[in-house]
Structure formats: C-alpha cells, structure tokens
C-alpha cells in the first residue's frame, strides 16, 4: 500500500517530464527551419551552408535591385492590395447580411461562401485556368485579383462573423431608441465595434493573396510573376542565397501581419469588453 502510489507517481513524474521535453524538442523543430534560414541569407559566400564565411547584405542588395525580384515584389503588392480591398468589402457585407438574415437558407449560404477553404487549391487553380481563359482574363492582373479574391473572401467572412457574434445588439437598439437613424447607428456604433474584426479579416485577405502560389502558377503570365512565383522558379533552378533572402522577406511580411492581427484581436476584445 505504501509503495504502490509512490511508484506510480514516480512513473507519472517521468512520463510527465518526458512529455515536456518531447514537446520542447518538437517546438524547436517546428520553428528551427525558419530561424536557420535567416543567418544563411546574410552569408557573404555563395552557398547556403554553415559555417558562414562572413556576414554581408549582398543578397538582400541583389534581392532589392535585381529586376526580376523587384518586379515580382511589385506584382505581389499590385495584386494583394486590390484583392484585400475587394475581399474585405465583399466579405464584410456578406457577414453583415448573414447576421441579419433569418432565412432557412443561411447555413447553406454560409457553407457556400467558405467552400474555397475546403476545395483543394489545385482543383480551383486548374479550373480557373480553364474557365478564365474563356473569359480572356488568363495572364492579366484582373484575372489574378479576382482569383485571389475568391480565396480570400472566406477568411473575411469567418473573421467578421466571429466579431459580429460577440457584438451586443442592445447597443444598437439603445442607439436607435435614443433617436439615431439606422445609418448613424451603423456608422457610430456597429462600425467602430466590428472594425478590428474587419481589419483582421483584411490582413488575412492580404496574406492569402501575398503568399498564394498555386493559382498564380496557372493563371499568371510571366508579366504577373509574383514573389512566391519567382521563389518557386528560383528554388527549382538553383538554391542560392538570394532565395534565402526572398524567403526571409516573405517570412517577415507574415510575422508582421501575424503581430498586427494579434494586436487587433486584443483591441477588439478591449473595445467589446468595455460594454
């Protein structure tokens, strides 16, 4: 009686300790590939190997001056910004509408609007190539913007919808009772409260387009080469440090967007928490 519980707790402790160590190792492996590539992009040599012969910014210089990479960066921005605006507008309207509707069709509509999250992108990409070429928009900026927007809308709908679920409808009723017109109530009460949700939806839309590769592979012509598209051909040709620099730039954009989204989430909680 005296020995058994002790033994059990020793095993238990060992298992617990082992699990913690395993988790730590897994966490390190999860992040390591992205950390390891950062110093490599700063190498003064021409190979992506450790130990570094020295540090230098030459590969970033190449990234920011070489025509192909500069053009690719511009293209990514030129496509991601309109996509963000379009997807955020359409998605926010849709989320507001879904929240208003009492129709029995609402679940079906909601599922339809998030299907791009379910359908494998490769299927959408080849379908878009097939259908957009009939519309004459393969190899054009609008073709890519529309294509990316369809992929981005679900993220906006989901994010804004989540914000609206937490939204206290009494505030809107109070504004209306106090004599605000519906338009005023929307502009002064609803909008400020859901704004953090709308903006983080926009961030999702931006990063969806900025990182998108598969649709771009099929719908873009060389003229619309985006950063991921350029990185894709770079990786298949030669692995050189410019590629590492490009990867780090893409990663930094993602980290920035992630931090902004997290900040917005906290802002949103604070604003809604005040009620």
């Amino acid at each position: 009686m005296a020995g058994a519980p002790n033994q059990a707790s020793l095993v238990e402790r060992l298992v617990f300790r082992g699990t913690r160590i395993a988790a730590l190792v897994i966490l390190v492996v999860l992040v390591a590939p992205m950390i390891v590539i950062v110093p490599l992009s700063l190498t003064s040599g021409t190979l992506l190997i450790y130990p570094l012969p020295g540090l230098s910014g030459r590969w970033y210089e190449e990234f920011f001056t070489e025509r192909l990479w500069v053009q690719a960066t511009w293209n990514s921005v030129l496509i991601a910004v309109p996509t963000t605006v379009l997807a955020t507008t359409l998605g926010t309207f849709a989320a507001l509408g879904l929240n208003r509707l009492r129709s029995r069709l609402v679940p079906a509509v909601a599922v339809f609007l998030i299907t791009p999250l379910i359908v494998p992108v490769i299927i959408y990409a080849v379908s878009a190539f097939y259908f957009y070429s009939r519309l004459g928009i393969v190899g054009t900026y609008p073709g890519l913007i529309f294509g990316h927007t369809a992929l981005a809308i679900p993220f906006v709908v989901v994010t804004v919808n989540a914000t609206l679920k937490n939204f206290d409808a009494n505030l809107l009723r109070a504004a209306l009772v106090l004599g605000a017109t519906p338009r005023q109530a929307f502009a002064r009460v609803t909008l400020p409260l859901i704004l953090p949700g709308v903006l983080s939806g926009g961030l999702f839309a931006f990063i969806t387009s900025f990182d998108e590769l598969i649709l771009t592979l099929f719908v873009a012509s060389p003229e619309q080469r985006t950063l991921p598209r350029q990185l894709w051909s770079g990786v298949q040709e030669t692995i050189n440090p410019t590629i590492a620099a490009a990867a780090v730039v893409l990663m930094l954009v993602s980290v920035l967007v992630m931090l902004l989204a997290e900040w917005l989430r906290r802002q949103g909680r604070r604003i809604q928490g005040k009620q």
Binding site: L90, G91, F93, A94, L96, G97, L98, N99, R100, L101, R102, S103, V109, F112, L113, T115, P116, V119, I123, Y124, V126, S127, A128, Y130, F131, Y132, F146, G147, T149, A150, I153, V157
Partner: peptide, 28 residues
C-alpha cells in the same frame, strides 16, 4: 430586414458563383 440582408450577401454570392463555383463546375 430580409431584403437588406440578401442585398448585402448577394455581391459575395455572385462573385463566388462566377469566379469560383462556375469555373470548377465547368472544368469538372
């Protein structure tokens, strides 16, 4: 209220139908 709701949802619905669902359907 329902009408306004549908008007808000319609642009996304039409957009997704035309640029996403119809291409996939036509391709399949």
């Amino acid at each position: 209220r329902e009408l306004v709701g549908w008007l808000l949802v319609a642009p996304s619905l039409l957009f997704m139908a035309f640029f996403f669902a119809v291409p996939i359907g036509a391709f399949l």
